[in-house]
Design a protein around this nucleic acid. Sequence first.
DNA 1: CCGGGTTCGTTAGCCGGCTAACGAAGAGCA
DNA 2: TGCTCTTCGTTAGCCGGCTAACGAACCCGG
Lengths: 139, 139
Amino acid sequence: MTDVIRLLTRAQKLLRAATDDAMRPHGVRIGQNLVLEVLWQDDGLTPGELAARMGVTTPTVVNTAARMEAAGLLDRRPDPRDGRLVRLYLTPSARAARAPISDARRRIADHALATLTPTELRHLTSALEKIVKQMDAGT
Amino acid sequence: MTDVIRLLTRAQKLLRAATDDAMRPHGVRIGQNLVLEVLWQDDGLTPGELAARMGVTTPTVVNTAARMEAAGLLDRRPDPRDGRLVRLYLTPSARAARAPISDARRRIADHALATLTPTELRHLTSALEKIVKQMDAGT
DNA sequence: CCGGGTTCGTTAGCCGGCTAACGAAGAGCA
DNA sequence: TGCTCTTCGTTAGCCGGCTAACGAACCCGG
């Protein structure tokens, strides 16, 4: 049925909005969150690498990175060996934001899932995995 | 955990992309889909009423309606009684697109959920309902 | 009847996705 | 050594969300 899909869309929208609200006070917008999470773990990636890990197109990363550079969250430095590449490095300010932002994300997840039992959570995860797998398979 | 949320986001993104792909050949973009679904059932609503039913802000409806008007999918006529109101009426072309678009939507939903058993589908729906309810409650 | 508050749609401007088209730099083969 | 092809990031321009600010129209109390 089509209503479970509408429900899924609605849930995602609510989560997205809540996440954006929570990160804004820290000077970070939701689109920048994934960039941060990847770079916190693996600094100095190129836009293309980031896009691949984020599951997003390269221009999206380029635009987001430009905004983050303007906001003082990262530096864009050319790769010394390959003139085509650009490497993105987080600033200390971005690294300092790691703990509070991670906490905020965790709080939102906890709250969103608070009324689910562990079993329900397992069922939910498995169902979503099946959907993703099926959509990825295409056809 | 935060990964089920990432999973949810990913599933929604895949569904959204598939839906957009399916509707494009019919001259309709994904943002216009909800407008159509509401107006198919209840023609002549105002942007504000539409926004409320769609769970979206009024400017979003206004912009989408402008694009749909340019595409010949709807007409914007002033309300004869209240000069502030604008009423949106679907064109025959938009009404003719109903069946094929509904079919396409149903096909996508069927495919996405094809690997779920009825029980799993019930579990999924109930879990999503809990999440939505919890987020709506706020706090 | 008229003047101020309310209720509309619209506009402006932002963010975050996307595709398409480019231009610069590297890689590899003749 | 060159020339072509590939591989990058960037730019341009679209769609679909949002908030904030606005202007026009209605309503209601004096």
